[in-house]
Design a protein around this nucleic acid. Structure first.
Length: 284
DNA sequence: AAACTTTCCAACCGCCAACCC
DNA sequence: GGGGTTGGCGGTTGGAAAGTT
């Protein structure tokens, strides 16, 4: 199917937003929910592409956006979540209220990715963590544990894919999936930790709640809050962040804690969490 | 102080999937 | 069910700011 441009390119302004443009956009969105972003620029009196307006609002002007440096807790969450879900920035952002996917992506690309590169340069052979532990910096520990999680995640994904294929032929029921995972765990190699975690009760709880959050039908008209609220998008993890329940966060943290425990077992006591002092002194 | 390099991040781009008619 | 439209997402870029020589 043919793809239409997001806006008429002729005469549409690009580049940095001026305070006047910001004010026009904020005023409009606060007075009316944006609704149709394509029509918004015209209605708001902006000479901008609708897409640009949406981006400006979601990444910068939204009132619930939290600015400033990332906290150690946020840093830790990003590392863990990236190891689990990869470059799903919106998904990661959904777990960090007030942070946008763009911000997290930038943070990853500027700080964390750089660390991984440096670590790779210092340690090209990818030796065992325990061997390099002595004398290594806490930041390299962080880089290494991220790399380990990433590797484990990819392997688990591959296994999950294979399992799902075989499951199709053996008609594994949902209720037996956890026992299947447990059985597999008994003789599984260490890299199956993600598979085990994902199929564990904690992982299942987290997974189901995540799906429920995503699948929740957008609140359309009726009962619109007084505060300016964007029409909930179809698949907006970032917006869903504000709706994440305490219970879900507890499950989520339980999931990560379990993951931390599991990983510790497999790497000779290698800590998932490097000492915060040394680690964050390099970032901020 | 000037020139150059690096870092940071706002903004853009193109793809894709959900939605709507 | 199919095609067009819209919004969301991840990758990338460009320029300002900060740092270094």
């Amino acid at each position: 199917m043919g793809r239409t441009p997001c806006c008429e390119s002729k005469g549409v302004k690009k580049g940095p937003w001026t305070p006047e443009e910001d004010k026009l956009l904020v005023d409009y969105v606060q007075a009316n929910a944006p609704g149709n972003w394509r029509m918004l620029p015209k209605l708001a009196g902006l000479n901008r592409c609708g897409k640009s307006c949406r981006l400006r609002w979601t990444n910068y002007l939204r009132p619930d956006i939290k600015r400033g440096p990332f906290t150690p807790e946020e840093h830790k969450s990003i590392l863990q979540l990236h190891a689990i879900v990869g470059n799903k920035w919106s998904m990661i952002a959904a777990q960090l209220p007030g942070r946008t996917d763009n911000e997290i992506k930038n943070y990853w690309n500027t700080n964390l990715k750089k660390q991984l590169r440096q670590q790779a340069a210092l340690n090209p052979a990818g030796d065992h963590p325990g061997l390099a532990l002595a004398g290594s910096s806490s930041s390299s520990l962080a880089a290494r544990h991220t790399a380990q999680w990433e590797t484990a995640r990819l392997e688990a994904e591959a296994r999950l894919s294979m399992l799902s294929t075989s499951a199709a032929t053996t008609s594994v029921t949902a209720s037996s999936s956890s026992s299947t995972a447990e059985h597999g765990a008994a003789d599984a190699p260490s890299s199956d930790v993600f598979l085990r975690l994902w199929n564990s009760e904690v992982g299942d709880t987290f997974r189901r709640k995540s799906v429920r959050e995503e699948a929740a039908p957008p609140q359309k008209e009726g009962g619109a809050p007084a505060a300016p609220v964007l029409r909930p998008p179809r698949d907006d993890y970032s917006s869903a962040a504000s709706n994440v329940t305490t219970a879900m966060m507890a499950d989520y943290h339980a999931f990560l804690d379990l993951a931390a425990e599991e990983l510790g077992l497999f790497h000779g006591g290698f800590s998932l969490y490097p000492p915060a002092d040394g680690l964050f002194s390099e970032f901020h």
